[in-house]
């Protein structure tokens, strides 16, 4: 960091940027993050209220809660929006702070795998309680 860098390639900034490719799926990433954020506004309020209502609940009461179809469906919506939003957010954080390409790709893949695993574990658990 302390050594003074020198420019060997005498090209304009536009010339340097050309040929590196477009942002590709960047717009979709940005848009999906906003869509899931908006979906999570009512869903997280619903989540907070259900957590309060299930305070000190027995397992039977939790099962009875998820046996209500609306609760099971809303929780599945929450799980879908939450984990998708989390995947997008963590990806941005890793892309910003991990500068070694191989480590960056590996960590994003690892986190994505963990997120899919947790999302499916939540969904299966909700369905098992509901059905």
């Amino acid at each position: 960091m302390s050594t003074d860098p020198t420019i060997h390639i005498m090209r304009s900034n536009l010339g340097r940027a050309r040929g590196l490719g477009s942002a590709k799926t960047g717009l979709h990433h940005w848009w999906a993050q906003r869509v899931t954020a908006v979906a999570l506004l009512p869903l997280s309020l619903y989540f907070v209220l259900t957590v309060l209502s299930l305070d000190h609940a027995t397992r039977d009461q939790v099962a009875a809660f998820f046996a209500e179809p609306w609760n099971a469906v809303l929780y599945l919506c929450l799980i879908a929006a939450l984990f998708y939003h989390l995947k997008l957010g963590v990806q941005v954080v890793l892309e910003d702070y991990v500068h070694t390409e191989s480590t960056k790709v590996a960590s994003i893949l690892l986190v994505n795998g963990a997120i899919v695993f947790c999302a499916l574990a939540c969904a299966v658990s909700i369905l098992k309680l509901a059905l």
Partner: peptide, 19 residues
């Protein structure tokens, strides 16, 4: 946001244990 990401592990654990 990152803390909530870790917190989802707690949510997962709670749901899986109930199931």
């Amino acid at each position: 946001g990152c803390a909530l990401g870790v917190g989802t592990l707690l949510l997962t654990y709670w749901l899986v244990s109930a199931a």
